[in-house]
C-alpha cells in the first residue's frame, strides 16, 4: 500500500450495525463515557417521513426516530455517534492513518459492545471518502481518465465537456465475506481556488458470517483495510497519486 504525504481522505467512517436496539439511557451513558476524547455533544433528533401515493392523493406520514448522540473532538476531526442500532466512529481530514483510527474504534467499541457476547452485529462497514483536488492551471476541461479509473462512459452527445457526473457501482470484493459500494462524482465548487475536485467514495462492508463474539468482530474489521486500499489504488492513476505525494 502506498503511504501518502497528503492523503486525500476527507472522511473515514466505520459503522457497526445491530438489530438489537439500545435504550436512550444506555446511549446517554455511552456518550458520557467518551466525553474526554469528544468534548462536544449533540443529541440529534430524527424524523422519518413517508409519502404514500397508493390510492391516488399523496398522504404523508411522519414518525419520530430514536435520538442519537453525536460527539465530536475539540478540533472537530474525530466523530463518534451512538445510535439505537449503530455505532459510528469517523475521522475527517487530516487522516492520521489506520493505526490511529483503529485505536479510536477499539476504544469506542469497548464502550458500545456488550462485553464478551457482543451486540449481535449484522453489518460492518468501512467507508473512505477521498477528494482528489486537481489544479486546473487555466484549462477548460479535465480528462477524467488522467486521474480516475472509475468513469462514466458517455456517447458523443456534445463537443463540450460534461458539467458533472455521478458513477456508482456495487459488487463483491476479492474477499468472499465482503462487498463494496464505490462511487465518484464532482465537488462543485471545489473547496480550493483554481482547482476542480472529484470525490471517490469507497465503502467496503460485510453482512455475512459476522462473528458473535465481541473480540472477533474487531479482528475481522482488519480485513477491510487491505480491501479498501486495493480498491482505492485501482480506482486512481499515477497522475492522481502524484497529487498526494
Amino acid at each position: 500500500m502506498n503511504s501518502y504525504l497528503r492523503p486525500p481522505i476527507v472522511e473515514a467512517v466505520v459503522e457497526f450495525l445491530t438489530n438489537s436496539p439500545i435504550s436512550f439511557d444506555d446511549l446517554q451513558a455511552m456518550s458520557n463515557k467518551v466525553a474526554g476524547d469528544y468534548k462536544n455533544q449533540t443529541i440529534e433528533k430524527g424524523i422519518e417521513v413517508r409519502i404514500d401515493t397508493l390510492g391516488g392523493a399523496a398522504t404523508i406520514h411522519s414518525d419520530q426516530t430514536p435520538d442519537r448522540f453525536r460527539r465530536t473532538s475539540d478540533d472537530q476531526a474525530d466523530i463518534v455517534i451512538f445510535a439505537d442500532t449503530s455505532l459510528i466512529v469517523a475521522r475527517a481530514a487530516p487522516y492520521p492513518g489506520w493505526d490511529v483510527l483503529s485505536e479510536r474504534i477499539r476504544k469506542n467499541w469497548r464502550i458500545w459492545s456488550k462485553g464478551q457476547s457482543g451486540r449481535g452485529v449484522v453489518r460492518l462497514g468501512a467507508r473512505f471518502i477521498n477528494r482528489i483536488d486537481i489544479p486546473i492551471n487555466g484549462e477548460e476541461r479535465i480528462e477524467l481518465s488522467d486521474y480516475l479509473n472509475l468513469l462514466p462512459q458517455i456517447p458523443n452527445i456534445s463537443d463540450k465537456p460534461m458539467s458533472t457526473f455521478l458513477v456508482q457501482a456495487s459488487m463483491p470484493t476479492a474477499n468472499p465475506h465482503w462487498d463494496c459500494n464505490i462511487m465518484s462524482t464532482i465537488v462543485a465548487p471545489s473547496p480550493l481556488l483554481n482547482h476542480m475536485s472529484i470525490l471517490l467514495d469507497i465503502d467496503v462492508f460485510r453482512m455475512r458470517d459476522i462473528p458473535s463474539k465481541s473480540a472477533d468482530v474487531l479482528a475481522i474489521l482488519e480485513e477491510a483495510r487491505p480491501l479498501k486500499n486495493t480498491i482505492f489504488e485501482r480506482c486512481i492513476t499515477d497522475r492522481a497519486r502524484d497529487l498526494f505525494r
Binding site: I136, R141, Q153, P161, T164, A188, M196
Partner: peptide
C-alpha cells in the same frame, strides 16, 4: 465515440 472529459469549472452542482 465516447467522451470522458469534464468541465474544469463545472457550473452545475453535483
Amino acid at each position: 465515440r465516447t467522451t470522458q472529459t469534464v468541465a474544469a469549472h463545472p457550473r452545475t452542482p453535483t
